[in-house]
């Protein structure tokens, strides 16, 4: 489904990604971990067209993604969230979802007023559990609710691949729990790649994990395999717990 070959990214002489190979098969829930600066977010930026690699290929469902514009990649079915959630605060929850769902409509059909709720929007509302907040403006949502709305906006677009950048950062324990359940359910019928720092969250919800270190894939496997690997322990898990669990500054 998603296949990265020998991807290299250079920022002002610094090799952010140094020959990454990554294959994510259809229907998988893949976790991407690694210490700060390992290149996790850069990897997502490359897939979604925000950053251009100097070498290597990114293929998704038979399409070459390198060189395509961001919105074109989204139209191929790749959706992403950001570390800092961006929802449109002046719009209501339902308008946010409707905006996301309508991205394939021709521009002139948007000139009509929204009537009712489309199927995709209703489904996204139900899945994220935001039905009661549907008519509230997104500006009043809590941090956790915003993240769910953002995931809901992705779902409303019916993407084939979801890329989530630290979806539980800054969330309370309960919110993490709910997000984990949401992710597991989404993974039932989507391919999902999650960048996450939170080890506890990882142990509870991850099946396959890819560890990045200094712009390369260090190791790939189940949670147990990965945490048992001495190299991983050395670069990542072996450090103080606070480093491993902490968030990106």
């Amino acid at each position: 489904m998603l296949e990265l070959r020998d991807v290299q990214v250079v920022f002002d002489g610094f090799r952010a990604l140094d020959g990454v190979n990554l294959t994510v098969p259809d229907g998988e829930l893949r976790f991407l971990i690694g210490p700060n600066g390992a290149g996790k977010t850069t990897l997502i930026d490359v897939i979604t067209g925000l950053t251009r690699p100097v070498a290597g290929s990114v293929r998704f469902a038979g399409h070459d993604l390198v060189g395509r514009k961001e919105h074109q990649i989204v139209r191929l079915g790749v959706g992403r969230t950001f570390q800092t959630s961006v929802v449109f605060e002046e719009l209501t929850v339902i308008e946010n979802l409707d905006l996301a769902a309508g991205f394939r409509r021709p521009l002139w059909t948007l000139a009509r007023r929204r009537r009712g709720v489309s199927e995709a929007v209703a489904e996204a509302l139900a899945r994220t559990g935001l039905e009661d907040l549907a008519e509230r403006s997104a500006g009043v949502l809590s941090h956790g609710q915003r993240q769910w709305l953002e995931i809901g906006m992705l779902l409303a677009q019916r993407p084939r691949l979801l890329l989530l950048d630290e979806p539980v950062a800054g969330m309370s324990k309960d919110e993490r729990e709910r997000t984990g359940e949401l992710l597991t359910r989404i993974a039932d019928d989507h391919t999902v790649v999650v960048v996450e720092h939170d080890m506890e969250f990882l142990r509870r919800h991850a099946s396959t994990v890819t560890v990045l270190h200094e712009g390369r894939v260090l190791v790939e496997g189940s949670v147990d395999q990965v945490s048992a690997d001495p190299r991983v322990q050395e670069v990542y898990l072996g450090r103080k717990a606070s480093d491993a669990v902490g968030h990106r500054p």
Partner: peptide
């Protein structure tokens, strides 16, 4: 309010 985010909505 968020041009970049709109881009990533397709």
């Amino acid at each position: 309010d968020g041009e970049d985010r709109v881009r990533f909505l397709g």
